[in-house]
Amino acid sequence: MTESFTFAIKELRFDETYTPADNTRLTTNFANLARGEHRQENLSNALKMIDNRFNDLARWDNPRGDRYAVELDIVSVEMTVEGSKEALPAIEILKPTIVDRKTGARIDGLVGNNFSSYVRDYDFSVRLPEHNTGRAGFSVPDDFGELHGQIFKSFVASDAFRAHFRKPPVICLSVSDSKTYRRTANSHPVLGIEYEPNESSLTEQYFKKMGLQVRYFMPPRSVAPLAFFFVGDLLNDYSNLELIATISTMEAFQKIYRPEIYNANSVAGESYRPSLKHQDYSLTRVTYDRDERSRLAVEQGKYAEEHLIKPLRAFLDEGSTKLAV
């Protein structure tokens, strides 16, 4: 089914002057930060958090802790389905570039980081609630996530992806607040201490259909593990600076999005159960509207249903049988 989709990539710099494009997914968290009366202060503070954390983790040959800066670009992916002339917004992800102020070098980071997509919003905010309406217990549709997985794998295998990026994406997300994570003896100099969940989450299963596996690590001087979704070998396929760019970017955003977990005043122990009801945490100097994020996810999901799922369902169902697993 890879040949059934064609993709076009646009990049937009995420900096202090960033203004969300008219066709951006409004549910993307970085768009949320760039609205309202505190937009420029929000953006400035978020970017400073990322730079500071990067230099905190990249301490070698960096005595003043200011050698590196991170530039971020929002990668917007439009998709055209065979037989249709309309390009549909499909995916938005972040791409960091590491700037070495000492040597002047510019080093590509790993595309991925914050991950958003219309179909994912449809699956979790529209289809899943509708599927469970009136049911005695929670259940998941048999084909849940399959279309989204097909789209994502087609994108990563596309000429457009290969033309822009050297390595597969690494997506970094928050841990689930419905699972318990246990510390292991394994550690990595940059990723930190590895944790393992007590059971697989729905997000894990969803991302598995995208061709991604997951490992959980709590980086040095962090307070909670992060979820890293990847292909290949997370610990050996990427350089320390590439991993640090991902960690510093997503840890900063998670401190803003979920301070109860990632800006808590206590560190995750050997057995860790995240909670958004945790009260002992600190707020960042960045304003983030979590209620808006949840509300717009439903709106974006309904948009995907009307403009992608319904009109093209028959074609996609027929083509899905041709996709190599």
Rank of each mutant, 00 (worst) to 15 (best):
A58F: 06
W60T: 10
A136D: 11
K10A: 14
E11P: 05
A34C: 15
T97V: 08
K48L: 09
Y68P: 03
A31S: 09
A87E: 10
L26V: 07
N23Y: 06
Q40W: 09
R59S: 11
Y118R: 05
L43K: 02
R53F: 00
K10D: 13
R101F: 14
E130L: 15
L47A: 03
R101Y: 14
G134H: 11
I91H: 02
T133H: 12
Y122S: 02
A105L: 14
M79F: 10
L128K: 05
K48H: 12
K102L: 09
N52P: 04
I98S: 00
G65M: 13
E16V: 07
L26W: 06
L33W: 04
E41A: 13
T17Q: 11
G109D: 01
V126Q: 01
I91N: 00
S117D: 10
K48P: 02
Y68F: 15
I93W: 00
V75K: 01
D61E: 15
R106H: 15
L12I: 13
G112Y: 01
H38T: 15
G83E: 10
R67M: 10
T80N: 14
T19I: 15
R59T: 09
N113H: 02
T28K: 05
T133Q: 13
A21G: 15
E41H: 11
D123V: 04
E130N: 14
E86S: 09
R59W: 07
F138P: 07
A136H: 08
R25K: 14
R127D: 06
F124W: 13
V77L: 00
S44F: 06
F124T: 08
A105H: 15
G36F: 12
E71S: 09
R13H: 11
Y68E: 05
L43D: 03
N55A: 04
V111F: 01
A90G: 03
L128M: 08
P129F: 08
R127L: 12
I98H: 01
R127H: 09
F124K: 03
T19D: 11
T28A: 11
A90L: 08
I50T: 02
P129L: 11
E16D: 13
Y122R: 03
N32A: 04
A87H: 12
H131Q: 03
L88D: 02
R25F: 12
L33S: 01
E11V: 05
L47K: 03
G134T: 05
D121G: 05
N23D: 14
S84P: 13
P96K: 02
R13P: 08
D61C: 14
I98L: 10
L26C: 06
H131N: 05
D61T: 13
F54H: 02
T27D: 05
F54G: 00
M79D: 06
K95I: 01
A90Q: 02
P96V: 01
P63L: 10
N55W: 02
